[in-house]
Design a protein around this nucleic acid. Structure first.
Lengths: 243, 243
DNA sequence: CGTGAACTTGAGTCTCCTCAAGAACTGTGG
DNA sequence: CCACAGTTCTTGAGGAGACTCAAGTTCACG
C-alpha cells in the first residue's frame, strides 16, 4: 500500500540549483534503516487536511513521501504568510526544533503521505547514525540558504520576474523528482503563489498572462506548459530590451 | 586583552521575543571548554573589514564576541541583499554548512572580535559534547524562524511599520545584551537598513522622520532614542486611527 | 578646514494594490 | 446529463505607496 523506503532528503536540490550556488547533495535517508531506531509511521492526508497547525506542540519531524503541501506562518493578529511548498523528499517541521510549539500551519494541497519521525526520539537515532545528524543539519542550513535566496529575489525583481523565477523553481524541483520540467500542474492557488512571492493574486494572474503573451509559457487554469525555458530565464535577468 | 569565555549562543533572544512565539533559550557555550576540543582562535576586525566573502571556501563558524557585523548575500549579477546584522553571542556562517563555499559577505560595521571555530573540526567536538550539537541545531532552526517572521513582517507591513519593527528588534537585542533598549547608535547606514527591510534608503529616512514627528523616537544622525516604546509598538499593530 | 560620504527633502512617476465585476472551473444533487 | 452554487481566476479602472531622480545639508575623516 505504501511505496516504502529509499526516500532521499536531497532537500529541493532543484531550488538551490536555480537560486543559489552549487553545493554537495545529501545522500538519501533509508526509512527502513531509520525505523529500527525510532517508531516511524506513515500519515495520509487528503487535500485541505492539516498535518499540524500553529500552536500545536512540536513532537515530530515529517518527511514527505508523496503529494504536495504548503507551510504557512500565522501571526497572532491573523496575518498569514506562505513560507514554502513541500514535495517528495522534503523535510517538514525542522524549523520548529528548539521550540515548544509549531509556528506554522502545514496543509496538504493534494492527497499526500508523509513519514512521521518522532521528536526528540529522532535525536537518539542521530546519536547512533552520525550521517543522519549531518543530513538534518544540512537540511536546516540549506533551508536558510533557500529562504535568503528568495529574499534577494523578491527584493530585487519585478512581479513578472518573480513569477518567472517561481515557475523555474517548480520546474527544476519537478525535474529532480523525475517529472517533466516543462509541463506540470500548479497545486496551489494564485493567492498562495502571491503570498509566497509577496504579491496579490491579481498581480500573479497578470504576470502569468503577460508571460503567456510573450510566448514563454502556456497557461490553462492551473496547468502550466513552459514553451521557452531560456526566454523565461531571460525575463529574470532583465533582457527585456528588444520589444 | 580578550574578555574570554562564557559567551552565550542565545541567538538574538530579543528578536524572537519580538517577532515570534516564546521558546526555550539555549544555554551559553563555554569557549574555554570548547577550546579543549578544537583550536579556537580569536579574530579582530576593524570597521569595513570582511570576515569572509562570498565564494571563499567554508572552513569555520564564527561566534561574535564583541562588535557589530552585517551579512550580505551577493548574486552573480551583482545584486546585493543584506540578510542580517550580528552582535555578541550570534553565530555567523552556520548557513554555509553543507556548502563548499560561502554565499555571503560578512563585514564588520565597527571594531569587532569573533571566535573562529574550525569546520569540520567542530563536528568532532559536537560528537563529544552533545549539548554543543544541540545548540548548533537550535541556532539553525531559530535562524529559519527569524527569517520567516521577518518575511511575514515585510510582506504585510508598510514602510513606516517595518522601520518601527526594526528599531524594536534592535532595542530588544540590545537589552538582551545588557545595553539600554531606549538609546543606541545605529551601526549601519540607511541603505543597509533599507536592503534588509526591502526599502530604499530615502524611504527609511522618511519613515524615521515620520516616527520622530509622531514623538515615538528621537533621531540624531545615527543616534536613536526611543521615547515611547508603546507608541512604536502601536505603529506596527495599525493603531493609526486617532490623528 | 576641505573633501567625500551619508543623510534629508522634494517633485514627479510607476508599479503594484484596491475595489469591483464578470468568466471559468469544480463538484454536488436532481 | 444538466443546473446550480461556490470557489477560483481574469480583467479593468483608479489610486496609493514606494521608487527615481535631483538637489541641498550634515557629518566624518584626513
Amino acid at each position: 500500500m505504501s511505496p516504502v523506503a529509499e526516500i532521499s532528503i536531497l532537500p529541493t536540490k532543484a531550488r538551490r540549483a536555480t537560486l543559489t550556488a552549487a553545493q554537495a547533495v545529501a545522500a538519501p535517508i533509508d526509512i527502513e534503516v531509520l525505523s529500527k531506531y525510532v517508531n516511524v509511521v506513515q500519515r495520509k492526508l487528503t487535500a485541505g487536511q492539516y498535518l499540524y497547525r500553529a500552536g500545536q506542540p512540536f513532537n515530530a519531524l515529517y518527511l514527505v513521501n508523496v503529494g504536495f503541501l504548503k507551510t504557512c506562518l500565522v501571526a497572532e493578529d491573523g496575518r498569514e504568510q506562505v513560507t514554502g511548498f513541500r514535495m517528495r523528499g522534503d523535510l517538514v517541521g525542522i524549523e520548529s526544533i528548539g521550540a515548544a510549539t509549531h509556528e506554522c500551519d502545514v496543509v496538504a494541497l493534494e492527497t499526500s503521505g508523509v513519514w512521521e519521525l518522532p521528536y526528540p526520539a529522532i535525536l537518539r537515532a542521530c546519536a547512533q547514525m552520525p550521517e543522519l545528524q549531518e543530513r538534518l543539519t544540512w537540511a536546516l542550513a540549506a533551508e536558510i540558504r533557500s529562504d535568503r535566496s528568495w529574499k534577494l529575489a523578491l527584493n530585487s525583481l519585478s512581479a513578472e520576474q518573480r513569477v518567472a523565477a517561481f515557475l523555474l523553481d517548480l520546474a527544476s524541483r519537478h525535474e529532480a523528482l523525475g517529472f517533466s520540467p516543462r509541463h506540470f500542474v500548479l497545486r496551489m492557488g494564485r493567492a498562495d503563489i502571491g503570498s509566497f512571492l509577496a504579491l496579490k493574486h491579481e498581480t500573479v494572474t497578470r504576470a502569468l498572462t503577460r508571460l503567456a503573451g510573450q510566448g514563454c509559457i502556456d497557461v490553462q487554469w492551473r496547468e502550466i506548459r513552459i514553451l521557452d525555458m531560456a526566454a523565461l530565464d531571460g525575463v529574470i535577468h532583465c533582457e527585456d530590451k528588444a520589444a
